[in-house]
Design a protein around this nucleic acid. Structure first.
Lengths: 380, 380
DNA sequence: TTGAAAGCGCTAACAG
DNA sequence: CTGTTAGCGCTTTCAA
């Protein structure tokens, strides 16, 4: 039993296919025609085929979603946000996971292009060159959670917002009422995120001009570092993951002075590498008393490594982790975290990519919140 | 700059479109023609449009994936498995999350039908009626992790494999070499999972005949219960989630005798409901000494509720949780779990749904493993 | 308000 | 081995 086509409906209703199409997409038609068509369509259990429509319109509906790892609760939450928005719009979502590997990312972009998916939400890992093809092909792209690494300009770039603003949020919003602060923040052109310095000569190759939904990393990190400093900690380490340059930068800035680079270590996206990095750090620098983990998988690794080395949290080591995830509370002690509104980020990114008409939508910067639990203590 | 079509390539190469199509899909062509076409295609950066192909073939490639909740690490891992397989096949995956709500599930199925996605992997929550439309439409469906609830037959159904077999695995494999036991298990017709009793009169409405990738719940639960009993526990409670009838049944059977139904409580898919259920259970039955949580979100809730009520684990309460998730180790104490090969399940489900020719593929039953950590102790 | 007709890009059947 | 051609189901001019 084959599916009914628009032609079947047209014949059964004694009208032309164009009329059926119009009725079903809310075009104009006389009431009686409309009613008849609707009745017949329902009776035949007609479902318009997306295939025909897509070919005709030269575009697949819905959106793509590219994430590093669905195993990471943060991205799981982000994805749920996207799906929630897509569902309410009745749009399909094509998902792909990149494992933070630019090559896989490029492949997935190619696949989406082949499918004529022209809207894409991504947590990018590749650089501008990975992304240019998608943009040139006319895809509407929205980045979430982070931006592609900027091509390193010749001269080391000073903080884009000028002299170390209190936070990105404030930087972007200087002169805005504090009521607006609690609102979701808008800013334009993510390439030059905060206070666009009109005169500053940027490198000729301007980064990508793609809207993004980000959280205020600078403020998140700064709050955490200040909190730790307030507890007396001086040797604070940072454990970072891939694509997180903004956070590291924020960390360097927050600790102030000449940062002790040995206290800043990185891993790639895998659990193993995170564990190795954490473990290595603890062993080479037993003098550190606090750690900021730049992501929940890193926090996981840090807690595990600390336990393995018999470092007691928070007695021997204070830990703050980026991302609030369900298990943070189950941990012993419960982890103090920098919470990001993961689900909202996904939802808003989906909104952006769906609403995007011809105009490029604006970027969104969401606030973070330091959730104090039990993993930080005074320096002893 | 528009994308090149097959026609452009044909013209530029001085051949017909059919030839291009043939060359690109590995059909026969003379070496020089092939070479020329390939060269031109590369030169024009030609990418075949899935739109045209899909319409022509009346089917969208790739597969759908329906999960209850991406926030649940178990499903995140499952999804990663599916994506890994899909990626290596170059196939797109359309994802949807149902929140264990049959209505949303039905809607998503409808959406996939509209997209002509004809392969679907699902952790089902709706019953047979929800799924029949998809099957009637000719979708190749593979269930993962669980099956739709069976329509309750008039007479209470005895254990389908006869007199309480040691486990589903063994039940399905009686007479099979023990070497094969460590292999992935095959069995036919999931509707009548284990030892198909030829003579037994089943209800007229046979359940769905859909292949599935499951784990051996019976053995998983039984092992856990036996472990707890070995530690001296007698009042063992079970905290269950939606769509988990097999596990509860296994639990009832494992505890033997007349189960104390008050010790068996359920929640829906949400964290809140799980917490409420756990908390309620602990308060109404302070005499229980051990708990089996039928899923990782339930385990999470149980640990939280126990902590809230000042029940020490494992001193006051021993806990075994279904699903091994990264945070199980971070928990204090680290949780003893029934581990399922989540990623493999996803991968294998994807294999099944992709390999499915006209023949219905066989079901797969994977083993579980009791991972003993620190959340269980002797009854005091 | 309505219908006829022209494709969108591709594959498969058929003819050469 | 290769080219021509007929659609797949739909939307969208363009006339009527």
């Amino acid at each position: 039993m084959k599916r009914a086509t628009i032609k079947d409906v047209a014949e059964a209703a004694g009208v032309g296919v164009a009329t059926v199409s119009r009725v079903l997409s809310g075009g104009s038609a006389s009431p009686q025609t409309r009613e008849r068509v609707l009745a017949v369509a329902a009776q035949l259990d007609y479902r318009p085929s997306a295939l025909g429509r897509n070919l005709r319109q030269q575009r697949t509906g819905g959106m793509g979603l590219l994430l590093p790892d669905l195993t990471d609760s943060f991205y799981g939450q982000l994805a749920e946000g996207v799906l929630a928005c897509a569902r309410s719009a009745g749009e399909p979502v094509v998902i792909g996971s990149t494992a933070d590997d630019p090559e896989q990312e490029a492949e997935l972009i190619g696949m989406l292009l082949e499918q004529s998916v022209d809207r894409l939400i991504a947590v990018p890992c590749g650089d501008a060159d990975t992304w240019r093809p998608a943009l040139k092909a006319g895809m509407t792209v929205v980045f979430a959670d982070r931006l592609p690494p900027e091509p390193d300009p010749g001269t080391p770039q000073p903080d884009p917002a000028g002299a170390a603003p209190e936070s990105e949020l404030e930087g972007a919003l200087s002169g805005v009422s504090s009521a607006a602060l609690s609102e979701l923040m808008m800013l334009d052109g993510v390439g030059a995120l905060p206070g666009a310095r009109p005169a500053a000569p940027r490198p000729a190759v301007r980064p990508l001009d793609v809207p993004a939904v980000l959280t205020d990393d600078r403020s998140g990190i700064r709050t955490a570092v200040q909190y730790l400093r307030g507890l007396g900690h001086r040797r604070i380490a940072y454990l970072g993951g891939p694509g997180r340059e903004r956070r590291v930068e924020a960390f360097r800035q927050a600790v102030g002075g000449v940062p002790d680079e040995e206290l800043i270590v990185f891993s790639d996206g895998s659990r193993d590498s995170a564990y190795a990095a954490a473990s290595g750090l603890f062993q080479t620098r037993p003098d550190l008393t606090a750690l900021v983990a730049g992501g929940n998988m890193l926090g996981e690794a840090a807690v595990l490594a600390a336990r393995e080395l018999d470092l007691r949290v928070p007695r021997d080591l204070s830990v703050v982790m980026y991302d609030d995830v369900p298990w943070a509370e189950l941990c012993s002690p419960p982890l103090t975290v920098i919470a990001q509104p993961a689900r909202d980020m996904g939802y808003r990114a989906a909104e952006l990519v769906l609403r995007a008409g011809s105009r490029r939508p604006r970027s969104v910067l969401l606030p973070t919140e330091l959730v104090i639990r039990g993993s930080c203590g005074p320096r002893l």
